[in-house]
Design a protein around this nucleic acid. Structure first.
Lengths: 107, 107
DNA sequence: TCCTTTTAGTTTGCGTCGCAAACTAGTCTG
DNA sequence: CAGACTAGTTTGCGACGCAAACTAAAAGGA
């Protein structure tokens, strides 16, 4: 901790809001465990509507947390995502902060 | 899990939004580790403005996650908070869901 | 060929939320 | 009594998440 007086719970107040949103946290978590993931897969795996998935993914893309690949497979358009190093780092930091804040440490 | 196919990351999508807000999560976490906590203490410990602290606490109170006690100490008004059983349970559930979702389990 | 359905995503509109700033109320000091 | 301080609450606004509406391209029938 930076400030020795700072209780670990303060880590919670500095969580990256972009990652903190449940849908995006779920998306990043899935992306972190696979090379490449398709839109369709995310939609079904997470039970998000296409609209929500699309907008969350856009935000993650704007932040540089993932990259988008649009391709055609058997003449069907397929959009895929890949987490970036930046995204992986953001997720890792988030995870660390959350785990720290969640630990039952006093104050 | 309800659906055997549901990956643990789905737990993330069912997080109690009331608890999920960082400031409120921090407040509940502090409250869970003490009998009673004063407004002033929370303000300083968490570095929240009085306004934000007040409004977050109000929401937690409305949800029945904490109870408020207003008293005077040496003619100075002191507002204190106590987590309720309901609040403690909500925090516990949140923690469990988050830890599950955060675990590096595939998908 | 034309039309309807399906798949794959994006955009739009609205209600809600979190934050900071402004405000209220009681106390103390000179 | 005037001004400053302590302790909170209320207000106003910008940002956000969600669902519904929309777009586009391909496949399947009649």
């Amino acid at each position: 901790m930076t400030d020795p007086k700072a209780p670990s719970v303060s880590a919670l107040l500095e969580l990256d809001r972009l990652v903190h949103e449940p849908a995006r946290l779920a998306i990043l978590t899935v992306l972190a465990s696979a090379e490449e993931v398709q839109f369709k897969f995310l939609e079904e795996a997470l039970g998000l509507t296409r609209g929500n998935l699309s907008s969350h993914v856009s935000k993650l893309e704007e932040a540089g947390y993932l990259v988008v690949t649009k391709a055609f497979e058997d003449r069907v358009p397929v959009t895929s995502y890949r987490i970036t190093a930046r995204g992986r780092k953001a997720l890792e930091s988030y995870r660390a902060a959350m785990l720290q804040g969640l630990s039952r440490g006093k104050a």
